[in-house]
Amino acid sequence: MAGHSKFKNIMHRKGAQDKKRAGLFAKLSKEIMIAAKMGGDDPDSNARLRLAIATARSNSMPKDNIQRAVQKGAGGGEADLMEEIRYEGYGPGGIAVLVDVMTDNRNRSAADVRAAFSKAGGNLGETGSVSFMFDRVGEIVFPAEVADEDTMFEEALEAGADEVVTGDEEHEILCQPEDLHEVAGVLGEKFGDPKACKLSWKPQNLVPVEAADKAESLLKFMDVLDDLDDVQNVTANFDISDEIMEKLAAS
């Protein structure tokens, strides 16, 4: 995982997840439904829905799919059964993990997440057991080609961002959660729609994973969690060097 971006490093395998388009669209639809259920179907007055729709569009989700999700959320029914849950625990090697779930069956989700932790040699904890190690942040991602590093840095800071990390493929902008809509709006006017725009968790400290076999086990565990139907996001506080990632890619 790219060492140039510590936050991207632990925000985990979005690239791999994006390839699973059907699963990704299902996750995006759930977020749109919940947003519409909680705040109404008008994006202009519902900031969470506005962000959910922007993220769906940036991931090439069809317009009809987006509209259906909005209607389902605003109309109740399936959306009324959905609830948001956050699981916390420790994965292989004592890595702290947050798992954000959106589900219509709390028992099913708990069993699936618990099984994933158990099989990986980790364990679920109580609410608050690891979340104190993370900060809530706004995250905005643009393709690298929309601007050079200096331009993005200057524009993002002027818009109110706290941090900008530029890598080979993208610019990653972090801001305070309450500033996300404003910062994203200002930057969107200059650079077009972002690839991602959402609230995320940022680890306060990272734990280096220095052995290839341990890194491989950890990544498999993260993938198992990501692949669960009810899981929306997985965040952990590990750091895997470029060297180890290259070894795993070559094996």
Rank of each mutant, 00 (worst) to 15 (best):
159 A>P: 02
66 I>C: 03
138 G>W: 05
209 V>D: 07
119 K>V: 09
183 V>M: 03
237 N>Q: 03
50 R>T: 03
6 K>G: 14
221 F>I: 03
157 L>A: 01
6 K>S: 15
12 H>W: 11
17 Q>N: 12
75 G>W: 07
110 A>T: 12
165 V>W: 04
139 E>W: 10
208 P>T: 02
162 D>Q: 04
192 G>P: 02
141 V>Y: 08
198 K>F: 12
23 G>C: 05
26 A>Y: 10
16 A>T: 10
56 A>Q: 06
140 I>W: 01
150 D>T: 13
125 G>K: 06
173 I>H: 02
78 E>Q: 10
141 V>L: 14
190 K>P: 08
103 T>N: 00
210 E>R: 15
143 P>T: 06
231 V>S: 09
43 P>M: 00
196 A>W: 12
182 E>V: 04
51 L>D: 05
36 A>M: 04
218 L>A: 08
108 R>E: 12
37 K>N: 08
101 V>L: 01
28 L>S: 11
13 R>M: 10
46 N>A: 01
240 I>P: 05
32 I>F: 05
4 H>V: 13
80 D>I: 06
161 A>M: 07
130 V>Y: 13
154 E>Q: 11
157 L>P: 04
70 V>M: 03
39 G>V: 06
42 D>Y: 00
117 F>T: 09
74 A>F: 05
19 K>C: 00
209 V>E: 07
144 A>E: 15
241 S>Y: 07
225 L>M: 05
90 Y>W: 15
11 M>I: 14
74 A>P: 06
168 D>M: 10
19 K>I: 10
35 A>F: 02
63 K>P: 00
160 G>D: 10
26 A>W: 11
60 S>F: 12
164 V>M: 01
171 H>W: 09
51 L>C: 05
179 D>F: 06
109 S>T: 11
86 R>M: 13
188 G>Q: 00
215 A>P: 10
28 L>K: 12
67 Q>T: 10
230 D>R: 08
168 D>F: 06
159 A>R: 05
56 A>P: 09
226 D>A: 08
2 A>V: 12
10 I>Y: 11
129 S>G: 11
11 M>V: 13
233 N>H: 15
87 Y>P: 12
136 R>T: 15
9 N>Y: 10
249 A>W: 06
100 D>H: 13
163 E>N: 02
248 L>A: 05
164 V>K: 03
176 Q>C: 08
3 G>L: 01
211 A>G: 08
238 F>H: 15
9 N>T: 12
93 G>Q: 05
88 E>T: 07
187 L>F: 06
88 E>N: 09
89 G>H: 00
201 W>N: 12
35 A>M: 00
74 A>I: 04
124 L>E: 06
134 F>A: 10
240 I>V: 04
166 T>E: 01
48 R>Q: 03
38 M>W: 01
98 L>F: 07
146 V>T: 12
54 A>Y: 02
14 K>Q: 14
18 D>L: 12
9 N>Q: 13
240 I>S: 04
14 K>C: 11
241 S>A: 04
95 I>K: 04
115 A>S: 14
156 A>H: 01
249 A>P: 06
124 L>W: 06
222 M>L: 15
44 D>P: 00
179 D>I: 06
180 L>P: 07
247 K>R: 09
106 R>D: 13
114 R>C: 04
